[in-house]
Amino acid sequence: MSNGMAILNPQQPRTAAMAERMAEVKGRSLWADARARFLRNKAAMVSVGVLGAVFIFAFFGHLVTPYDNETIDWNVLGKVKELGKPSLANGHYFGYDDSGRDLFARVVQGTQVSLMVGVIGAAIAVIVGTIYGAVAGYIGGRVDSIMMRFVDIAMSVPYMFVLILLLVVFGRSIEMIFVGIGLTAWLDMSRIVRGQTLSIKNKEFIEAAVATGVPSFTIIRRHVVPNLLGVVVVYATLLVPQMILTESFISFLGLGVQEPLTSWGALISEGTSTMNYGTLWQLFFPLAFFVVTIFAFFFIGDGLRDALDPKDR
């Protein structure tokens, strides 16, 4: 388009004809760019593989072992140190736990519970926090002040105390853990999202949408949220291990998931209490899964951050 004067008329039939002949060109979205950068990140890709393996272990692990997680082997009970060692020969790959149950099956079960708590807890936090923060930030003014002061107040309550209180008053159950974690985890998220929304809100494309007459909630959904999703995704991957840690800590204290259910935290807690008897594998296996998974999440979060915002490295 070298000659500015002839944009409209003389060239128009030609452009139309050219367009006719050419197929529609596919664009490269920012998401596609980010995906390409993420796929090049070796640490993150290894972590994705490791995490995939952990998930496969959680969902299909029970198919590899002939033992279930509740049958007690009375022959081993009391002699776990001598007879309960991990062994490929007898099919107890991770050995026995202190009550004479197959530890492999127990770890599979614990992995399921821990991952569920992590993923569902983070999902609740992300959904609630994103909506809350985006609405507060976009509407602004007094609504924003009231909504964010509420968050400040809720944050100033020591959440571990609230969580423990909830578990003591309403009984120890996995549902109560979800409620307790859900009550507090979205607060951070909403703050982060609000901050991002404030910076996006002043961009001209938002102004363009307002000038066009797009309704406010459509603007939030179509223009604000997709543009802060990068930050949200990164934070969410870091939130999952945080949820797992919280649950593990609660379970370690003995307030979390209760028998016959178990989780990494509960298994680690059992493992530490039997360390003195020389059955170290009871600590080692759940702890290894726990550490590896958390590391994998952190590396993925790092990789996502680099991929989604290459300037911010």
């Binding site: 001209e204 102004e207 363009a208 997709p226």
Partner: peptide
């Protein structure tokens, strides 16, 4: 009335949502 008056902005790139085609 919004469809009767439209607006063009100063920063051409910033006035287009980067996540939309």
């Amino acid at each position: 009335h919004r469809k009767e008056m439209q607006m063009i902005f100063q920063d051409p790139l910033a006035s287009l949502n980067p996540r939309m085609t």
